[in-house]
């Protein structure tokens, strides 16, 4: 009996030792002001990469700027140019290098803060396939600032365009001796494997959600821990009055006007941007969506026009940013 009691006690102790969840942590708040930020940032992106249905991929460099002017105005600028664009040949004037530039202006209609618990990680270790994270249970109360704006802007872009992604029935080459389709009657593809050029100018408008947290605490027995973020999430609708496919010139000098019968002038996108509120460091932006461009062919006349997956794209940019405090700066309600 004594032996059994001893075994039960030992098992209970072992169970408790491996399942202790109670946590007693005290901390002192060192910094918790989401208004004490650098409201301007300039990012120099040494590398962006974009995957799109139009040409496959492009990568290159770019720059981004973002400015929150006072309480109500927000402005943005983004420029990218490719140094590795699939399908683009410098010597082939039919093709176009990847280039993208946009400017936007936003009206901030919500610029307030609330107390909310945010997670604080005390330690994180990885051993083999197991990662152990110790965090303050329930998080730590922090001032979370939310800035919501309606924004609009203009973008202009060029890219190479793979002809194999164009629909045969909708593509016409006008010029030379006679007009012809992408495929002839014997199903031979004209200009098979060729790349052309694409250009588009569009206006966009949408909503931008910004979240700013700047919490620094001194945790007893752990030292300084922080939760600092300056993140954006946006959704835009796009309308492109200009969607062009570049003329195609053959080696014998004949120029063909490449016509595509059905163009989708509308598109959409959503994206995320990350940086720190005050410190200089790395910034990233991820965006995906469906740009205006050639429509997919309707195989069944009764069916609605399907989505052209070749107009889908995803972009990731990454670079160093310099944050600056430039007047006017909104410091919150007194």
């Amino acid at each position: 009996m004594k032996k059994t009691r001893y075994k039960i006690t030992l098992a209970l102790a072992a169970f408790l030792a491996t399942n202790i969840n109670a946590q007693s942590v005290t901390w002192k708040v060192i910094e918790d002001d989401p208004y004490d930020i650098k409201n301007f940032s300039l990012a120099i992106d040494p590398l962006f990469s974009e995957f799109s249905g139009m040409n496959g991929y492009s990568f290159g460099w770019g720059a981004r700027a973002e400015y929150m002017m006072g309480k109500r105005i927000q402005a943005g600028f983004d420029i990218r140019t490719g140094f590795g664009t699939k399908g683009y040949l410098i010597s082939n004037d039919n093709t176009r290098n990847y280039f993208y530039t946009e400017g936007s202006l936003g009206f901030i209609f919500y610029n307030k803060d609330k107390k909310k618990n945010v997670p604080i990680i005390l330690s994180q270790t990885t051993s083999g396939n197991t990662r152990t994270t110790v965090s303050i249970r329930g998080g730590v109360p922090a001032t979370v600032r939310r800035v919501t704006s309606l924004r609009g802007g203009v973008y202009q872009m060029t890219n190479s365009l793979s002809y194999k992604f164009l629909a045969d029935s909708l593509t016409t080459f006008k010029g030379g001796a006679s007009d012809f389709k992408l495929k002839d009657s014997a199903s031979n593809v004209n200009f098979s494997g060729q790349y052309g050029g694409f250009a588009s100018t569009a206006i966009f408008g949408g909503i931008n959600f910004r979240k700013i947290v700047q919490l620094l605490i001194d945790v007893d027995g752990w030292g300084y821990r922080q939760n600092k973020r300056y993140t954006d999430f946006y959704i835009d609708g796009i309308f492109a009055p200009v969607v062009l496919i570049k003329d195609f010139k053959t080696p014998d000098g004949t120029t063909y006007d490449v016509k595509y019968d059905k163009i989708s002038y509308f598109g959409w996108r959503m994206g995320w941007v990350w940086r720190k509120p005050k410190e200089q460091g790395f910034s990233a932006k991820f965006e995906f969506g469906n740009r205006p461009g050639p429509k997919a062919p309707v195989k069944d006349p009764k069916a609605t026009v399907p989505v052209n997956f070749n107009n889908y794209y995803a972009t990731l940019t990454f670079g160093l940013y310099i944050p600056l405090k430039i007047k006017p700066v909104y410091k919150g309600e007194d």
Binding site: F59, F83, G84, Y88, L89, I90, S91, N97
Partner: peptide
């Protein structure tokens, strides 16, 4: 990486 377009065109 920055020379990719030029390299693809043997330039």
């Amino acid at each position: 990486a920055t020379q990719t377009n030029k390299a693809n065109d043997n330039q």
